[in-house]
Design a protein around this nucleic acid. Structure first.
Lengths: 124, 124
DNA sequence: ATTATAATTTGCCAAATGGCAAATGTCAAC
DNA sequence: GTTGACATTTGCCATTTGGCAAATTATAAT
């Protein structure tokens, strides 16, 4: 039941968005294997993680950390480590948004707060 | 012939210095497996590399790079802005989004591309 | 040289990985 | 409904990984 990685990978694939076959084509990993990884039937090797990191918009070391291959704190330039605790911006998101002109970037925030206000008025 | 990693690992083990058995004891990897890795009969998995990195005095990511699991220079987690092309991210937008949990951040991108696809199908 | 002891290698095996092809599911158009 | 085009899952299999124990090879010490 402790399958974060599979869920994270699937979540990211869905939101990119990609199908298993498309991800397979872009990464060179078979779709059946990818599927099994997502639902926790197989554990991805470093080679596989490396192959799928780019198409999914992850940094290589990011996936390695999630897989437990690499310790949470990234050496490099000392930086705040608790990264997935939500204090920091997802690199993929940052990269995508940076492609947009500034006014679009800001309206994204507007849409987000709109959605959140809708959520607040929803029966729970 | 094409075995840098094995030689490097052995060289490092010799100069530490350690025997295969000592390294096995400190790392929790069997000495027979370590021996095979050194002479290139087996290729170490990420899990094994992680276990032997400390006793050998390597940084984890260092061995991963030598093994070809990680690209030569991995940028730190937070400063990819240097290699994103073109525009940059509005600091206000970045700060707002960073407050959200990662899955929300990513679904924002999904919403954005949805909106863009709708926009493209609109009469001008 | 002959032990004793430590270090390395080999044989064998269980478990895991990952691909291919067939089976199954899903969903829209007709 | 049926069909067809996808996407996902499953069955099966080759390959690889990594451990254990036995065999071999140093390395001393007497």
């Amino acid at each position: 039941m402790d399958n974060d990685l599979g869920k994270i990978l699937k979540q990211q694939r869905i939101t990119v968005p990609l199908t298993l076959q498309e991800l397979a084509a872009q990464s060179g990993v078979s779709s059946s294997h990818l599927g099994r990884i997502e639902r926790g039937e197989r554990f991805p090797s470093a080679r596989i993680l490396r192959k799928i990191s780019r198409p999914l918009g992850f940094d290589e070391d990011e996936l390695f950390t999630l897989a437990g291959f690499l310790s949470p704190q990234t050496p490099g330039v000392a930086e705040e480590s608790s990264w997935y605790s939500g204090r920091q911006l997802d690199p993929y998101v940052a990269r995508m948004l940076a492609e947009e002109p500034p006014e679009i970037q800001r309206s994204v925030i507007g849409v987000l707060s709109l959605i959140k206000s809708i959520a607040r008025s929803l029966p729970r």
